[in-house]
């Protein structure tokens, strides 16, 4: 589903590569944690998958596409197969929960009937049925992140990328979010989650890829957060 082969990413203004000779293979339906200190290259990894950035060297394949050869007008098609969740939720403050989730379908030109079926379904999946008319301001942080997950998943993408989705949440709420991500993973969606949260990584017992200074230092199935931290 996602394959990095000897990938190096050097940002133009920096001397040290953000990623250096990274090779990672993620199968369809896998759940992997990307762990590592700040600046270790987790976010760059995700940006390369989204093709927000292009690799300086090596090959990145996502959903069967060679991203180095993907013309920029085809990038939107790629992104329709990838859902994205962030630490800061990124909801539209003047739209309510339903509208926020529906927005992702509307901009893709889906018809009203489909939107009216998919949005409530997805809200139920993340446990927000009954709160569809609330504005983001009226929700707790955990609920806002659920809205963001619903928006990322409403289009049924093949891949879900989560960049520190529990970074702003307390442990109890984080567990709720992880349950949703696990539920999404069980539908066959590949989940890649970058995180700092040792407790979560330890409890989930999923594959862990650890990055340090842009290099893969550990790739362990059913791993834990780490020995050092």
């Amino acid at each position: 589903m996602i394959s990095f082969e000897d990938v190096t990413k050097l940002y133009p203004t920096q001397t040290r590569p953000a990623l250096q000779n990274v090779s990672v293979e993620v199968e369809k339906g896998e759940f992997i944690f990307l762990v590592g200190a700040s600046g270790s290259g987790k976010s760059t990894f995700l940006r390369l998958v989204l093709r927000e950035e292009r690799a300086t060297g090596g090959d990145v394949h996502v959903a069967g596409k060679d991203l180095s050869r993907l013309s920029s007008w085809k990038v939107p098609q790629l992104r329709r197969q990838i859902g994205c969740v962030f630490q800061d939720f990124r909801l539209l403050p003047n739209k309510n929960v339903r509208e926020n989730v529906a927005f992702a379908l509307e901009v893709l030109g889906k018809n009203r009937k489909l939107i009216n079926r998919w949005v409530p379904e997805t809200l139920e999946l993340v446990g927000l049925d009954g709160k569809a008319e609330r504005l983001p301001d009226e929700l707790s942080g955990g609920e806002q992140q659920r809205v963001a997950i619903a928006r990322a998943f409403v289009n049924r993408p093949m891949i879900l990328l989560a960049d520190e989705p529990t970074g702003n949440l307390d442990p109890a709420t984080s567990i709720g979010i992880m349950k949703i991500l696990d539920r999404i993973n069980r539908t066959g969606t590949t989940v890649v989650m970058a995180t700092h949260d040792a407790a979560i990584v330890d409890s989930m017992r999923k594959r862990v890829v650890e990055l340090e200074f842009g290099k893969v230092v550990r790739d362990q199935s059913r791993g834990v957060y780490g020995y050092s931290s």
């Binding site: 990038v75 939107p76 790629l78 539209l92 992702a104 901009v107 893709l108 030109g109 289009n155």
Partner: peptide, 17 residues
């Protein structure tokens, strides 16, 4: 920019944006 950022993220076409 918030809206357009999200549109880009969920894969809206350039035309739609």
């Amino acid at each position: 920019r918030r809206e357009t950022g999200i549109m880009r993220l969920v894969g809206a076409s350039n035309f739609a944006i």
